[in-house]
């Protein structure tokens, strides 16, 4: 069941086209990773989903309701964490958490206190004195203590230390177990890789790739290191082999998924001593999109 749908959303600021025809959707119970560099349009998309910005054209719906027209109705069932939580300097963290939870609707006070403990936040301090990471914790506690059905998280872990990042990841995993859906926009690709079922990559206001990680990996190359009894001069001229380099006693290269079979046959005929293969990381995938397509855009 689709609970969030973005269809052909375009947003112009004057002459600047921030988004041009963004399409993606999130199903119930799914963690969707939204990745792209600064200025690609992640936050603009999220602000449209929150009804802060009005799309120039196209439609954004959450729970089947229009994100702009029915924002209040939608917000009763969503929790949002911004990348840079702007809080009121003269309220304490605890006061802000209560305020946010109350303005959204119902919440569990026990869960609130548990989360404050898990994130090791001192809620009696004024927000003025909080570091970036602590402000982020205030936003995270007020999101996860709610009984929201959809979490919209815009680079939620900026400023958090690795321990707290782990707590955050546990929270997302728990939410997923409870059948909740998450839109996670992030720079930290390892985080996305660990948490997300599906990923959408945005570049210059357009979604250039969506799919599960397996699907996306299928489109890309595997890293191989091979040490063989006989040298393999034929490898250099094989289609689908890239970045061939000799490393201690062997060769390292990348191979396209489609030509994997032929390459493996060649290696085994040369007598395998050692063979290491690593699947492409999200980072490889991401960099590849940006390196190749980035250059022709300039």
């Amino acid at each position: 069941m689709t609970i969030l749908q973005v269809k052909g959303v375009t947003k112009r600021f004057g002459n600047f086209k921030a988004l041009s025809g963004v399409d993606f959707n999130i199903n119930k119970g799914e963690v969707f990773g939204f990745i792209g560099p600064n200025g690609a349009g992640k936050s603009t998309t999220i602000k449209i989903l929150l009804g802060i910005l009005k799309p120039t054209s196209g439609s954004a719906t959450i729970f089947g309701l229009d994100a702009w027209k029915n924002s209040v109705e939608i917000h009763k069932k969503i929790a949002y964490v911004p990348g840079d939580a702007n809080l009121w300097p003269n309220l304490t963290g605890g006061e802000v958490i209560d305020l946010f939870l109350k303005l959204r609707g119902s919440f569990d006070p026990v869960k609130r206190d548990q989360l404050i403990k898990r994130f090791q936040l001192d809620p009696t301090k004024k927000c003025r004195t909080y570091s970036k990471g602590n402000r982020q914790k205030v936003a995270l506690v007020s999101a996860f203590a709610s009984d929201a059905e959809l979490f919209i998280l815009d680079e939620p872990t900026s400023g958090l230390d690795p321990l707290m990042e782990k707590v955050f990841q546990d929270c997302v995993a728990e939410a997923k177990q409870e059948g909740k859906s998450v839109l996670l926009s992030s720079h930290i690709l390892s985080e996305v890789e660990r948490l997300c079922d599906r990923v959408g990559i945005i570049r210059q206001g357009t979604i250039i790739e969506t799919g599960s990680l397996t699907e996306l990996r299928h489109l890309t190359r595997t890293n191989l290191i091979a040490e063989t009894k006989k040298p393999m001069p034929a490898l250099a001229n094989m289609p689908g082999v890239h970045n061939l380099q000799s490393v201690d006693n062997g060769v390292s290269f990348q191979v396209d998924t489609e030509t994997m079979d032929a390459v493996m046959k060649l290696i085994s005929s040369a007598g395998v001593i050692r063979l290491e293969s690593t699947p492409p990381t999200l980072e490889d995938l991401f960099m590849r999109h940006y390196e190749t397509k980035g250059s022709d855009a300039v």
Partner: peptide
């Protein structure tokens, strides 16, 4: 300007 209305409107506030 300080980005604090956004955080309020992200809750169920019209």
């Amino acid at each position: 300007k300080k980005g604090r209305t956004e955080t309020v409107y992200a809750r169920a506030v019209s």
